[in-house]
Amino acid sequence: MKAKNPIVWFEIYVDNMNRAQKFYETVFDVKLSELPMPDTLDSDMKMMAFPSDMDGPGASGVLVKMAGFESGKNSVLVYFHSEDCSIEEKRIEKAGGAIQQGKQSLGEFGFMVLATDTEGNMFGIHSMK
Rank of each mutant, 00 (worst) to 15 (best):
N121I: 02
D84T: 06
V27C: 10
M45K: 01
E83I: 11
K22Q: 13
M45F: 05
F69H: 07
S52V: 10
G102D: 02
D42G: 02
P57G: 07
A95G: 08
N121V: 00
E25W: 12
L63F: 07
V76D: 10
S86Y: 11
I87C: 05
P36L: 02
A98T: 11
S60E: 03
A95K: 12
Q21P: 09
Y79I: 07
E119T: 03
F23D: 00
S127F: 06
F50Y: 00
F28N: 00
V78H: 04
K46Q: 03
L77F: 09
A59E: 03
T26A: 09
A59W: 00
K90Q: 14
P6V: 10
A3N: 12
H126G: 12
G120L: 05
K2F: 09
I7F: 15
F10K: 01
S127H: 07
N16A: 04
M1D: 15
D39S: 15
Q21D: 11
F10P: 03
L106D: 04
D53L: 01
F80S: 00
S105R: 06
R91A: 03
S52A: 15
T26M: 05
D55A: 14
A95R: 12
G120C: 08
D15M: 09
M54G: 09
V76M: 15
F50P: 01
E88A: 07
A95N: 09
G72R: 05
